[in-house]
Design a protein around this nucleic acid. Sequence first.
DNA 1: TTAGGGTTAG
Length: 634
Amino acid sequence: MVLTGVCSLHIQPPLPAIPNVKNTNIETVRTDLLHNFNTPFELKQIHSYIIKTNNNEKYSILPLNRVASVCALSCDFDYAQSIIQRVSPSHYDEIVIWNSCLKTFAEGDNPIHALLLFSQLSHYDIRPDTFTFSFVLKACSLLSHLVTGSLVHALVEKLGFQSDLFLQNTILHMYASCGLTHVAQRFFDKMPRRDVVSWNIIITHLTKQDQIQLAHALFDQMPKRSVRSWTAMIAGYVQCGRPKEAIRLFTLMEEAGEKPNEVTVVALLAACADLGALDLGRRVHEYLNKCGFGKNVRVCNTLIDMYIKCGCLEIAQKVFAGMEERTIVSWSAMIGGLAMHGQGEEALKLFSSMSRIGIRPNGITFIGLLHACSHMGLINEGRRFFNSMTRDYGIIPQIEHYGCMVDLLSRSGLLQEAHEFIKNMPIKANGVVWGALLGGCKVHKNVELAEEAIKHLLVLDPLNDGYYVVLSNIYADAGRWEDAARVRKLMRDQGVKKTPGWSSISVDGSVHEFVAGDAAHPQAEEIYEKWQQLLKQLKLRGYVPDTKVVLLDMEEDKKEHVLYRHSEKLAVVFGLMNTPPGTPIRIMKNLRVCEDCHAALKLISEINNRDIIVRDRNRFHCFKDGSCSCREYW
DNA sequence: TTAGGGTTAG
């Protein structure tokens, strides 16, 4: 077996009696051990004193499991074991102390220690109980240690514990954690008795395996549901990119009279963030303040993320400022959020504050920093961060970091350097990396390198319509219409269709979604009428329709007609018509904003004295007084 | 002294 011979069992010599341990009253000593002493050193002092008195009767009433588990927690493995060994069955239930240490290890930073300790149990004439197995199986789950987990399962059956429901659930969880879906499902099917925990384990596992439909089918069959059952399904829908279903399920949960807890709230806020559903997000915020969940770090982190992704950077900053405790997730979310909103300088300042107080960044913090540099064109700063992450923090750059670097170099026009950078990468470039180079080629009109990038992209990500569109745009921009047509034909031949663009806006809690040329909206006629009025004002201020963004083969005036019906324009006009003057208009878009809409929205913000906040696929554009927060850099 | 869920990027 893998676990033998690692731990040495020996009794450590008792520590010398400490002068300040003078109290010989055993009850006081017990109280001290239970409540007043917390460090292994203090506990050892008392323990050694008891050993010195050599009074086994006294020993018998001491909470040795606490002493042992505190020592175990600080990785004083030998001392913990010496306590275990010292206990004699007549005076203390030995297995309780073993279990106590196993629990401490299983729940600590190194669950492998629980397995090592368990392997030593076979050297003694002590029978493990259900608690013993539950802790060991927990460690197996955390470590995804299938070999040991299966052996423990066999041992559970051999010793006749197989009918214990607690253990059955723990075994089920172990198989699920080890990724054995079929084994877990078979085990679940054969369970003679199941409770709500059994159902929750299998449902959660299926959602994590992207088997959301199967999970929902089981959820529907559950004889009884708990908050955790609802939460598992809601979180599952968010994880598999179906936030609308998550919110729908939450409504059903409320109707069923179930109260959400912190975890439900986190899942719900994540769904709001994905959808840009600010109204619901705000209501959840009010709710969690009422429930007292507002101090929970994870809840606050998700709240920050929700406000950032709904375009409310200032509220996110307020939540961040009000947090009593912050983790690296809080800092990274805020740094990434500032970058996304075009406030790169603030992102870098926040990183400095974080470093000053000794918080260590992680890989995701650096993605935020590199984005910030990219959006501001801070090439040297970006290079410095990229080098620093490994040199100063031991963080190995992942493909995402390389993607950020290529983006940074390409956007700044250092296309050859970006290309060299890709060629020298220690890991194989993916579609995102080559796509970043292609994006830079579009901005800086480099047809040759664009063709090089597309060569790789057609292999790596042939069904992604975005790359064909960009290349076709590059050709059109260079006046190479035949090549542009060739790309469109290639797209058709490959069966690649352009993802239809949509924009949405939330008014009075209802989400209105628009596609290009939308005629289905009840206010469609008024929207187009209002647009025609607005167009006159735009043209007076110098707006010229940028028809090159239209890839279709058609006459100029028809292209203009297409442009005027882009979904973000329709959504903004709808917003102007249906929200009070002076209030911000928030738009969500599934693709990137096109150049023409970008130019138009800048002028619309000025003409109507409105802030227009657009979240596109990559970042935020905040149009205000005729300019955009992205500073034309997107 | 035992079982199940959550955050930043993409």
